[in-house]
């Protein structure tokens, strides 16, 4: 059955967006990522213009992350205090990132910077997570590595002012840490045009030392607010949100997020990390292929990445 999308101006088999939503929602519930880095390129492949794909994806992430946050909150996996500090930093970083992208566009270097940021950030995060989780699976070695790393990191973190205890995560950190790293992710997310979940998750795991299950719930909480803001701005200023497409996507993603949250409970933290690392590395390889192989078309619609 086909439905016509009034803003994307195209017709689509409803099973495709519902299926995509289900798959990406599953990842969202499992790993605490919005899935924008997967969904937006897939929608573009289906013939949706890049600007509509990115804006509509934000709208469906609101539904998926609400569903995921709700599921994780019920399991006691959301650190609201940490989430709010990350959100504050992310919001400020987003404003800086938007200005940075304006300057880059004016100089004509935007696409190069965006693509390179994608490759490097995804590559570094993917490789680091893969190696780290593989190592920590070998328990004995992990203990040694962790204590050595923690002592270096915690020394620095404890020297920072405004120390506070985050009860849900069971960690004590300076308020500056989530705000600064939230800001850093916000800048990158704005430059890359994504929610930043796949960057925020490693920050929470490796820098803030939060337990993986709390990381997933808190990341979704933070993504929810980011995407509400982006959806409203896209609808108000660019008129690019396709409501029908968003509904089709969220039909799948809300269910997928719930299923993901349930599955996530059955997997260990390291298992979750290694699967996410593989997905991130697969996307990195795909981008590298896109950058190096001859494209079939040399022209594309203006807008988006």
């Amino acid at each position: 059955m086909f439905l016509y999308l009034p803003v994307a101006l195209t017709s689509i088999n409803i099973m495709i967006p519902v299926g995509l939503g289900l798959a990406v929602g599953l990842l969202s519930g499992l790993f605490g990522v919005g899935g924008g880095f997967l969904m937006t390129p897939l929608l573009i492949m289906l013939g949706i213009s890049p600007t509509v794909a990115a804006a509509t994806d934000s709208n469906q992430i609101v539904a998926a992350s609400t569903s995921g946050t709700y599921a994780h909150w019920k399991m006691g996996n959301v650190d609201f205090k940490m989430g709010l500090y990350l959100l504050a930093g992310g919001f400020a970083g987003g404003l800086v990132g938007v200005q940075a992208i304006k300057v880059l566009r004016a100089t004509g270097n935007a696409d190069f910077v965006i693509k390179m940021t994608y490759v490097f950030m995804l590559g570094i995060v993917g490789i680091y997570m893969f190696i780290e989780s593989l190592t920590s699976m070998k328990k004995k070695k992990t203990e040694e590595v962790k204590t050595e790393k923690e002592s270096k990191m915690s020394k620095f973190l404890k020297s920072l002012p405004f120390q506070t205890h985050f009860e849900k995560s069971g960690v004590t950190n300076s308020l500056l840490v989530p705000v600064i790293f939230g800001g850093f992710v916000g800048i990158l997310a704005a430059i890359m045009g994504v929610g930043g979940g796949f960057l925020m998750v490693p920050v929470m795991v490796y820098i803030l030392r939060m337990p993986m299950h709390v990381v997933v719930g808190t990341s979704l909480f933070q993504i929810l607010f980011n995407c509400i803001e982006v959806t409203f701005l896209q609808a108000y200023t660019n008129h690019n949100v396709d409501f029908i497409l968003a509904v089709l996507l969220l039909l799948g993603s809300t269910v997928g997020a719930q299923v993901g949250a349930v599955f996530g409970r059955k997997l260990k933290g390291d298992q979750l990390k290694i699967i996410l690392a593989v997905i991130v590395l697969t996307v990195t390889v795909k981008i590298i292929f896109e950058l190096t192989l001859n494209p079939s078309l040399l022209l594309s619609q203006a807008g988006g990445h």
Binding site: V62, S65, S67, T69, Y70, T231, F243
Partner: peptide, 12 residues
């Protein structure tokens, strides 16, 4: 669009 997405997320 946001309210419907929130409602759908909570509903599910």
């Amino acid at each position: 669009s946001i309210v419907i997405a929130l409602a759908a997320g909570f509903g599910v």
